[in-house]
Design a binder for these strands. Structure first.
Lengths: 217, 217
DNA sequence: CTGGATCCCTCACGATACTG
DNA sequence: CAGTATCGTGAGGGATCCAG
C-alpha cells in the first residue's frame, strides 16, 4: 500500500490498515472461515503471490488476521480472522450492498466470487422473515459446500469443510444460477425441474430458503 | 485508480468505484455538504492536485458525486454527493468506528480531520439518549462552523456556512480538545473554566451535548 | 485568486520464474 | 504447497505552470 494518510481520523486509519489493494477482498474471503494461501489465491482470481504474501503480513501485523497451523486431517498453515478482523463484517456487508446496486449482470466468463455470494447472503438476510426459525442448509456451489445455519432467527455462515453432519436441506447449483435465484431472476421450481438446482430435502424448505434472503427495496 | 478487480461481487465492484486511494476520504469530506476544490485539497492534507482532479472525475463518472455551480454569494464550482453517494454514509461510519478502535492518541502536529470528527459524531450518536429531543447546536472547530441538529431524536449534520440563524447552543474549541471531550478524556466543566471550550448558551445544554455522543462499549 | 493541468520521479503493484 | 526473487509498468507524490 502507498504511504499512510497520516490524518487523525478513524476512517483514515481504517484505510491505512485495510485500504491497500486486495486487502478487503482477503478479509471477505476469510469471513467464511480459515483458508490456505492457495485457497485465497484462487478466490482472488489474479492476485500476484507476492502481493498476497505482503498483504497477509500487513494484516497480521495490524491484528486483523492470524496465521495458524491447520487442524487435524489437513496439515500446513492457514489464515483466519481475529476477533477484531471479524468486526469488519458489518462495514463490509454494507459496502457490498452499496456496490451491488450499480453492478450490471455478470459478463460471460467473469469470475463469480463464492465468498462474495456469502457476503451478499449476510447482507440480504431478513431477520423479520426468519424470526423464530431454526434450520440448517448446506449450500454447494461448484462443489464447495457452505453451511448456512439459522438458529432461532440468527444467521451464521461457515465453510462446511468439516464433514457436515447433514443439514435438513442441501442445495447444489452454480454460483451464477444461485445468484439468479437470489435476486429473483429465476424461479426455484423451474431450476429444480430443469436440473440446474439439486435439492435434497423438501422443495418447500428450498423455497423458504430463498424467502429468507431478499434484497431490500 | 488501479485496475479493476473484475470479479462479480458487490464488494469488489464497490472497491472498483471508491477503492482508489483518497476516494473514500473525498466522500467523507463531502458528507458534510458541498465543497470547493481547494476546500477538499485542504481537508485531504497532502493530496496532489492531479490526483484530486482525477478522483473527482472518476467519482462523477460513477454517479457518486456531482459537479455544480455554487449557489448565491459564493461563485465558482463545487462538488456534492449524489443520492447514491450519500448512501455511503452508513458503511463509512461503520468503517470509521472500526478504525478508531486501534487508533492511538493524536501525534503532535498530526492533522486532525474536521470532517472525520463529524463522521465520528454520526457514529457515536446515541438515538436512545436523544429520543424525543429537539435541539440545534453550532459547533465551531478552528473557526469553521458545523450545524448539528437533533429533530425529535433524529440527527443531521451540515456545514453551517449559510449564516446560521443562531442555534440554541454554540460550542467553540479546537478539534483535538473536542475529541478529548468526545471520548471522555477531558471534562466539559474543566474545559470551560480553562477557556478551551467556549459555550454560548447554558452549560447544562453543553453537557447534554456530550451525553448524546458516546462510543459504544 | 480559484481551479485546475503538466511534468518528472519514485515506488507499489502486476506478471512470472523460481525455491524451501 | 507456500511462499520468495526479479523485473517492468503505471499510478501516485510533489512542485510548478497555466487559464478563467
Amino acid at each position: 500500500m502507498p504511504r499512510e494518510y497520516g490524518q487523525y481520523c478513524g476512517l483514515a486509519h481504517a484505510l491505512d490498515v485495510v485500504g491497500g489493494r486486495w486487502s478487503l477482498l482477503i478479509v471477505r474471503d476469510l469471513l467464511t472461515g480459515p483458508k490456505r494461501f492457495k485457497d485465497l489465491e484462487a478466490g482472488l482470481s489474479g492476485i500476484p503471490t507476492n502481493v498476497l504474501s505482503a498483504r497477509l503480513k500487513e494484516l497480521e501485523d495490524f491484528g486483523v488476521i492470524r496465521r495458524q497451523l491447520l487442524p487435524r486431517p489437513a496439515k500446513g498453515v492457514g489464515y483466519e480472522l481475529t476477533d477484531y478482523g471479524r468486526e469488519l463484517e458489518e462495514p463490509l456487508v454494507k459496502l457490498g450492498l452499496w456496490g451491488a446496486k450499480t453492478m450490471g449482470p455478470a459478463v460471460k466468463g467473469q469470475p463469480v466470487s463464492l465468498d462474495g455470494l456469502v457476503l451478499a447472503l449476510r447482507g440480504t438476510f431478513r431477520p423479520d422473515v426468519a424470526a423464530g426459525l431454526t434450520r440448517s442448509y448446506d449450500l454447494i456451489l461448484d462443489g464447495r459446500p457452505v453451511r448456512i445455519s439459522v438458529d432461532d432467527g440468527r444467521l451464521s455462515i461457515t465453510s462446511a469443510t468439516e464433514a457436515a453432519d447433514g443439514a435438513e436441506v442441501t442445495l447444489a447449483t452454480t454460483p451464477e444460477q444461485f445468484l439468479g435465484l437470489l435476486v429473483g431472476q429465476a424461479r426455484v421450481d423451474d431450476a429444480i425441474t430443469t436440473g440446474r438446482l439439486t435439492v435434497t430435502g423438501s422443495k418447500t424448505e428450498a423455497r423458504r430458503f430463498f424467502k429468507l434472503f431478499q434484497p431490500s427495496p
